[in-house]
Amino acid sequence: MTGALEGLRILDLSRILAGPTCTQLLGDLGAEVIKIENPKTGGDDTRHWGPPFVDGTAGKPTDLSAYFMAANRNKKSVALDISSKEGQRVVRRLAAGCDVVIENFKPGSLAKYDLDFETMLGDFPHLVYCSISGFGQTGPNASKPGYDLMAQGYGGIMSLTGEPEGEPMKVAVGIADVMCGMYAAVGILAALRHRARTGEGQHIDLALVDSQIAWLINEGVNYLTSGEVPKRRGNGHPNIAPYQVFETADGHVIVAVGNDAQFERFAGWLGRAELAGDERFATNPARLENRDKLTAILQALLYERASDEIIEGLEAIKVPVGPVNTLDRVFGSDQVAARDMKIAVDTPAAKDGRVSLIGNPLKLSKTPVSYRRAPPQMGADTDAVLSGISEPDSV
């Protein structure tokens, strides 16, 4: 079996997380990804974002931080200084033989190197050129830098996250970056579909803040529909109750009641069947209106029981329930093993010859993902890649 994107060649000028997330996904699907890294700075910023780092064969830390490895498998690393004339010449030679260029420089900053989308598409009209920035190529904030935390703050998700009386909270991982990378992958595939029909490349302008606003989803449309600014609810759901985390005798569980029939079964299992007939709690709108009273009743009842008892009991009557797992339990679970969500990739850089990574969630029946290359050390593929490109006078 071959990957769905086998034969696709991507020139990756991006760094940190949004762009690398996109190109790793495309690489898993079979694309060849050539990652350009600046040797003057030690490569991608995230190579230095540790510990933890992978220990090398000499027992010393390598430049493979866990953060870098999270988004950089299935790539070739080429050490190249694009601020130099030679570096710019090599990038253009590489681009001539690629299908996609992706970058996340500050808008307009690549123009001084003649590597901006207007110049590159003018010279190589077949390219799909994807630009990722904090606020996009247009608008009053286009010149401002973009970071995941800033995007979460500006785009509103932090105002919705955290305890009601606490401070606004970011999501624990760089979710604005990750989701931007996912949107980038979709945009690139759509642009490649257009090119297959017309022969035309195009520019994709993608902003961290735009993509974060896009996944406000129901809370965003709640505001647009009602005009009421949503408030933080901790682990509570804005439109369903009870749908949250509850403390138990020995930990926490999630109870996610999605309809009135489930609530009736839940109340019966708790020994409080009368709650389902109480006009304050009989329907979801009523439960939302009386959320605080209901939560207090349920919390008192669940606190008397162990987590496993609650999970087993509610699963038996088909009321949605689940644990709040720590990562040791996540990656130690039989479900993760069955779904190949923890993988190991061979690399000569590591002391024990392997590194552990998170698997790709896509399960394609005809063109499955593959893990062909471990995250590379900086510049590991420079000679191999550059020896195979065309001479300067051919582009």
Rank of each mutant, 00 (worst) to 15 (best):
A151C: 09
A349Q: 05
G201E: 05
N325H: 11
Q24N: 06
G139I: 08
I343P: 03
L270K: 02
S390E: 15
P61Q: 09
D260V: 09
E264I: 08
F124S: 03
E289Y: 02
V324I: 14
L275E: 00
V128T: 08
A190V: 10
I240A: 10
H194Q: 13
G136E: 06
D328I: 06
G201P: 02
L288M: 15
I34V: 15
E264H: 12
V253N: 00
P368H: 03
P323Q: 02
R73M: 07
R92K: 15
N222I: 10
R193W: 10
D210W: 04
Y129I: 03
S77P: 09
D352T: 13
G56P: 07
A306N: 14
M120W: 02
L192V: 07
V355C: 01
G56F: 07
E391I: 05
V78H: 03
Y147E: 04
P20S: 08
S356Y: 14
G7M: 11
I358N: 08
P348K: 08
V186F: 10
A349S: 11
P375S: 13
P238N: 12
T248V: 07
N284I: 13
D340G: 11
K363V: 15
S14I: 03
L314I: 06
N290A: 04
P145H: 12
G234V: 04
R92S: 13
M169Y: 10
E118R: 12
G162Q: 08
T138L: 04
I310K: 01
G388V: 04
A58E: 15
E312T: 13
V385L: 02
F263K: 01
N104E: 07
I188W: 00
D99I: 08
I254F: 02
P230E: 10
G43V: 01
M69K: 02
A71E: 09
V369R: 01
V385T: 10
L327S: 06
G30S: 09
K351G: 07
Q88K: 09
T2C: 04
N239D: 11
F53K: 05
I311G: 00
S83P: 00
A71N: 13
E247W: 00
E219R: 11
V209Q: 01
I204V: 06
D334Q: 15
K363Y: 08
H252D: 07
D352P: 01
T295F: 13
D346V: 11
A4I: 14
A184V: 01
S365Y: 05
S159R: 12
A380W: 00
P168S: 10
I297P: 08
A241K: 00
R233V: 08
Q152H: 14
L275H: 04
L29P: 00
K231E: 15
G122I: 05
G268W: 05
G146I: 05
